[in-house]
Amino acid sequence: MPLLPKNWPLWLLVLVLITLPIGVGLLWLFLTALFDQVHGLRPVGDFSPENWRFFTEGSVGGRPSIWVALKNSILFAAAVATLEVLIASMAAYAISRMKFPFRTPYLGMILVLHAFPAVSLLIAIYYILRVLGLFDTLIGVILVKASLELPLGIWLMKGFFDQLSWDMEMAALVDGASRWTVFWKVALPLVRPGILALGTFALLSAWGEFILPFTFIVSGKSWTLALYMQSFMREAFVDYGLMAAVGLFYAAPVLLLFLLGQRYLLNIYSGGVKG
């Protein structure tokens, strides 16, 4: 255990003050979701499950069922994460291990793509999706989201593959493996921490994605939870209680995933791959 700094109560106070706005926000979310009416942070109504009616009522205010939105969000996040992990691992392995023409410019391009603001691409992507007939489909948004996330994923996985010893792969080749087998049976199992980290990261990022589904999805049957929530803001009278309840429902899986996956997320920064 490291020793506490000399004036630790002061530091603690500073930290608490910095964290306070977020804490207050969360508190508001909980209170608003659980009580009939809340003024500021003071519940004025009764404790009531009224705000959670979206669970039982098939459709709240003409919206599609929350379960459809939940299903779409899960599908969206899972598909994006799977695609991203799969493609990023294979691309990163190739970049890390093989020599091919234009490798260095390609690496540079990936970095540029990563830095490129996705919002500025929205109109072009809209046309592309229209041409491909993928506008207003979940698949279309999945492809767009996965592509935009790939550069980061490739760089991340490349870092993990770079740390693997060549000897191990040479040994596998001599043992009779093809390059393909080496990738699946030797290299990939050894970068498991990287895969888990990237997977968790991709899941979280896709789960919270708003602008892409908002732009490219119109019909209710393809709504994700983010769109479901946003739909409350479009009304003249915003039912904050209902919105807070949906918000909590939306945030719960992320909290759970983060609790389970934070060990792997930390790996992104430390980058250790010891077997």
Binding site: D167, M168, A171, S178
Partner: peptide, 20 residues
């Protein structure tokens, strides 16, 4: 030929055992 078609066995300085 590819290494797998050569019928050789090899021991590396680092042993290169698969840690997983």
């Amino acid at each position: 030929l590819h290494p797998r078609d050569r019928d050789v066995g090899m021991v590396f300085q680092s042993y290169a055992l698969y840690p997983h």
